[in-house]
Structures are given as C-alpha cells and as structure tokens.
Design a protein around this nucleic acid. Structure first.
Lengths: 234, 234
DNA sequence: ATCATGATTTTGATGACTCAAAAAATAATA
DNA sequence: TATTATTTTTTGAGTCATCAAAATCATGAT
C-alpha cells in the first residue's frame, strides 16, 4: 500500500507535469509540497525504487504508467469527495479542498464508488476540475481563460484553477463561481486588468491578469443543462 | 495535535478501562492494539509526558481527564461516522467499523457536526453503542445480556458488543441486529447454549454462551419509537 | 523464603519522513 | 572562458512508531 506521503508526491508530480510537460524539476516539487529540497531528492529515490517515477540525478522526475495510475486514482477520490461534500453535505466549496486532502487517503474504494453512484457519476468537481474515471481515464478539458477568450461573447465559468480558500472566496463574492454567466468587456494590458460583465444583472467587475488567468470559461451554449450548485457555508 | 496512533491508544485505554475499572495492564493494551509489549511501554511513556495518562512502571495505565476527553471525542467521531455510513450512505453495518476506524482520525469537526445535524443527533450507533455528546458526556447504558435477562419476556436487541464483521454478519443472518424483537426461551448451562425465539415469526435460534453474552437487550417497551434501520450491503 | 512463571521494561535496531547546512553539479552571465 | 548564481544532491541528525530479544520485576507455589 502506498503511504499518504507517496500519494501526495505522485499527485503533485502529476499536476506539475500537466503544466510544463516533460520532466518536473525537483525544486518545483519541493515548494509545491512545502518540504526541503533534500527531502524531495530522498523521496523521489524511493519512488523510483518502487517503480512509480523515472528519475535521473539533476534532470527531473516524471511518472511511470504505474505512478500515473496511482496519482489519477487519488485525484478521482479527491474530486469525488469534493463534490460529495458540497452536494450532499452542503459544505462551502471554498473549504472542501482541505477536507478532501485528508479524506482522499483513507476512504475505501467501496465508499468512493458509493459516492459516485449517489452523485450520478459527475464529470467535474466543484472547481470544474475533471473527475478521472475508475479506469483512470482523465478527460482533457481545454477551456480558454479570461485572458485569451473572445470579447463580448456570452460565456460561462467552467473552471477555477486555484484551490486556496482565499481566492475561492473572492471568486464567490464576485459571483464568478463555476456555472456563472458573463462576458468579457475588455482588457487593459497596461493596467493588467480585465473588465468582466456578470450576465444576470450586468454588474461589472475588474480582475488583475493573475486572477483572470485562473478563471477558465466556455461558450454559454456548450453544456446547457449542467448546473454546479454550490451551497452556502453550513 | 494528537497523532492517529495516540488517538488509537487513548481509545483503547478508554474501552479497557470500561471493563475492568482502574488500571489497565500493559499486556491488554498490547494485544488489543496488536503491537509488541515493548512498543506499548514506550508509547505510554510519551502519553504520560503529554499529560494524557497516569502511569507508574509495572502498575498499569489510566486516562487523565485530558486523555479521557480526547478518547471520548474520537469515540464520538467514530460512532457518528458509523451511523452516517449506514443511514446516509447505505452501507452494510457489519463493515462500517473498519471504515470509521480510518475516517475518525481525519474528519474535521465541521464535518462531524454536519453529520450529527443531518442524522438528527442520534443517541447510539448501529451497534447500539452510545454516542458521546460534543461536550464529552457519555450516556451509561446498562442493559442485560442474553445470559442474564429474564426468560419468556418480550425483548429487543439494544446493543451488540463485538465489532468484528464475522460476528456481525452472523448476528445479521440470525436476525438479531439492534432493534430486533425476541424472547429468551431457556438456557442450558451444561451445553452452554441459549435458546432464543425471534418474535416476528417465532423462529428459534441457538447461541453459545460466548455469543449470547455479547448481545444486550432491553424491554420491548422502553424505546417504542426507536428504529435503527440497517441497510443491506450496497 | 526461594524459585519458577508470567508480565513488564530495556536495549538495540529498523523504516518512513523530515530538516539544515555543506558539497557538488548545472546553468547563466560577464 | 571564467566566474557567479542557481539548482540539486549529500551528509548528519532528529522524530515517531515499531520489533525482537534480553534483562528485570512481581507474584504465586512449593
């Protein structure tokens, strides 16, 4: 059985690999996991001995098929748990990440599949992240973010790429949670801001480029019936 | 924060203390926890340093108020989780113990209280074990078991004192789960068996003294409306 | 009162995970 | 190219939880 630490390392390598494809530098891992760099070197060696990663000194890490499978499995747990906590337990979508972070390591397969059933096999979690299938398939979503999408087109928030509760609560306050409808009115590259119009009421909000790049959108029509209800804090 | 291992030790000391009041011998702890005796000695010393137990070499262990509080807190989590898994998730009551054993260490207080609310503040778990209050009060249930209860009186199973899934599944098969109605027809002290009549259909089952002592009953009338529905395996 | 038996504690060691700081390798820059 | 700067690895050490086996204690029986 893989220990929780191993699962965390694999998850982390997986998501780092999503961005900069290829080898993940040790330093990225260290800062993403919040541990010293020497610790990562040591751990990566044992992951290699377990056949979960490929690694050559001074080059970087990447997942083997076995490692990828395990990582995806944990990701499935994590995201299903998040949906469960929001939909069934009525918890705040800005706080479920931390809870899921703990639960993902201990919940049995039986319970996970029970949740999946209960939730009607959801495709994405409350942040819009895709939920891998039990067979380890991950749906590739390639949405545009608020920096690169078309102007003055009706859009819907499809995904929010930041799990920190401070950012999520900001997003919530601005009415930008997944499912919200909006239009990008314009961008100011000097000021590095994006002007967004919320569609229901026409209210306008400004976002910095950093924040805007973390909000992904899709055309309003693509998934007409999808509704990601996010409940209020209990 | 107390580590899972610490929580397990405290829980264990608590339940051992329930039986033979006073000091718990190290050997009992060792076998109950499935670890070597030297391990217990070492761990108990650190528990003492943390102010969670009292301990003098060669005498035994007992919980301090702080230790008791922590133990009871974990017990509350454990038992609420069990009710949740059975009532909300529709899981088999014979298997929820193991799942709860893992979850009890990671579930947040927020989530636990959410479960408690959702379940209507249940008083007992699916095995009939009392659920401590959030303030740490534990209701003392003193039921009689099938060895000491009156004969030929309408009774209802109130509690099953064994968490092993093999025993619980036997109990389930025989129709003796908490809430079931029955009468004790007689006992044979030579053969060490108890004859039990299931009330709905008058079917008769035989139990050895060992098994009979683990099933506690109460008068059928005492809690007329209580119903502990236990769902089938999913 | 001595002795054997059983329970308990010590001892020495291991595995998993971590750190800080020194050493080495790589990359970048002048 | 030579010299910094950055990244990575090594080294030495510490914590937590564990074991097996040796040493010690406590107690019941002769």
């Amino acid at each position: 059985m893989a220990t929780s630490t191993v699962e965390d390392y694999l998850k982390c390598i997986f998501s780092e690999q999503q961005r900069s494809d290829g080898l993940v530098p040790m330093g990225h891992l260290a800062s993403a996991l919040g541990v010293a760099s020497g610790t990562v070197t040591a751990m990566v060696k044992t992951l290699k001995r377990s056949g979960l990663v490929t690694y050559e000194p001074y080059s970087g890490v990447s997942l083997t098929p076995a490692g990828r499978q395990l990582a995806v499995h944990v990701l499935r747990r994590h995201r299903l748990i998040e949906v469960f906590l929001v939909e069934i337990m009525g918890m705040d979508w800005g706080t479920v990440h931390e809870e899921a972070e703990q639960l993902e390591h201990v919940v049995s397969d039986r319970l996970i599949e029970r949740m999946d059933e209960m939730l009607g096999h959801p495709a994405v979690d409350p942040h819009g992240d895709p939920i891998p299938s039990a067979q380890g398939e991950v749906l590739e979503l390639n949405h545009l973010d608020l920096l690169s999408c078309a102007l003055s087109h009706p859009l819907r928030v499809a995904r929010v790429l930041d799990q920190s509760s401070t950012f999520l609560h900001l997003v919530e306050r601005q009415g930008l949670r997944p499912g919200s409808h909006l239009e990008v009115q314009g961008r100011d590259s000097a000021a590095e801001t994006v002007q967004v119009k919320l569609l229901p009421d026409g209210q306008s909000v400004n976002l910095g480029f950093g924040a805007a790049s973390k909000i992904e959108v899709a055309s309003s029509e693509s998934f007409p019936s999808e509704k990601l209800s996010t409940s209020l804090p209990s």
